[in-house]
Design a protein around this nucleic acid. Structure first.
Length: 325
DNA sequence: AAACTAGCCAACCGCGACAAG
DNA sequence: GCTTGTCGCGGTTGGCTAGTT
């Protein structure tokens, strides 16, 4: 037996709201408040579902809403909170005055996810892709690794290519003083060839990571408890090594170990269980802010998240692993 | 100029949580 | 404790617009 509909589909209008409808709804709510959404459309003279009215009000008509672009600070807040609570859009939006969960969700899906991917960071786990690859190599027995790695390559190929090709131009724009020489021209001219070549190089790197035992933790390669971040960085030398030290900060791409917020006991494995994280959100954020003041761990405030202090990769070179800093 | 594509965002859908009876 | 009604949330879709071919 299916769920009963929230309203009679035949009698309700759907789709875009007209200014007249907006006026009716706004003036009705201004007079009577938002009690009982089911009755609001009827009483306000609207041929809309109550649910639709609620959505229109909460996402658009509410007087306290901001409608402009997201600021850098807001974006940073979203990324930071998402790394802690995951897709809890309402929770994240609650920390951004004037923004709705729909706004935040849309902004994340259309902009921020790509930004992170472009930086080589998995937007789901907030870990560098290189870490995820290394985890695959260290948490499974070798025979399984080969199959999984192949599958993972398929999953991450686009992100890696994005990082290794397109975003390079973005970084240059943001970082006009970077000493890049003439590699950009080379890159543009042979973009397609290198794209194909890059896939092969990534495959090769994966194969090396899987096949060369010295890259893996020496005791039990598939024992994740023995796999430290340092192991990841080492095991993952097939990938940009300096990225394994990623964090959301100016020294994000330094080589000083794993300081990703994810690794600091918030989550285990590649997925996050957001249950008690939600409860501990404020506690965690405060903790991180405290650490920031010590100039070390945690997620950085300010404009650091999308700062351009990153490693660039010389695709014109034969060796994919040659970073241009 | 037309056709196509990608990005963006408002709106919808279905489910779970919760309160009232 | 169960049923019913309502609300809120997250995922998804559809349409508009701008950019590209």
């Amino acid at each position: 037996m299916g769920r009963i509909p929230c309203c009679e589909k035949d009698n309700v209008k759907r789709g875009q709201w007209t200014p007249e409808e907006d006026n009716k709804l706004s003036s009705y709510i201004a007079q009577h408040g938002t009690r009982n959404w089911r009755l609001i459309p009827k009483n306000a003279g609207l041929q809309r579902c109550g649910k639709s009215c609620r959505l229109r009000w909460t996402n658009y008509l509410r007087p306290d809403l901001k409608h402009g672009q997201f600021s850098d600070a807001e974006e940073q807040t979203i990324v930071k909170l998402h790394s802690v609570v995951g897709n809890r859009w309402s929770l994240i939006a609650a920390q951004l005055p004037g923004r709705t969960d729909n706004d935040v969700k849309n902004h994340w899906n259309t902009k921020l996810k790509k930004k992170l991917s472009g930086m080589g960071i998995d937007p789901v786990t907030h870990k560098p892709f290189s870490h995820l690859m290394a985890e695959i190599a260290t948490t499974l027995a070798p025979p399984q690794v080969a199959h999984l790695a192949e599958a993972a390559l398929g999953c991450f190929k686009d992100e890696m290519l994005h990082l290794l090709t397109k975003k390079r131009i973005d970084f240059q724009i943001q970082q006009p003083n970077a000493a890049l020489g003439n590699t950009t021209a080379t890159y543009i001219n042979s973009k397609q060839d290198e794209k194909d070549d890059t896939i092969e190089k990534i495959k090769l790197g994966l194969s090396r990571a899987i096949q060369e035992p010295e890259m893996l933790p020496s005791n039990k390669p598939w024992d994740s408890t023995g796999a430290t971040s340092a192991n990841f960085a080492g095991a993952c030398s097939a990938f940009p090594a300096s990225m394994t030290g990623y964090q959301y900060g100016p020294s994000s791409f330094g080589n000083d170990g794993d300081r990703s917020p994810w690794s600091q006991s918030m989550c285990t494995g590649s997925t996050c269980t957001a249950g008690d994280q939600q409860v501990r959100l404020h506690e965690k954020l405060e903790e991180e802010n405290g650490e920031d003041s010590e100039g070390g761990k945690g997620i950085r405030n300010g404009s650091s998240i999308f700062s351009s202090d990153c490693v660039l990769w010389d695709l014109s070179s034969d060796d994919l692993m040659n970073p241009i800093v």
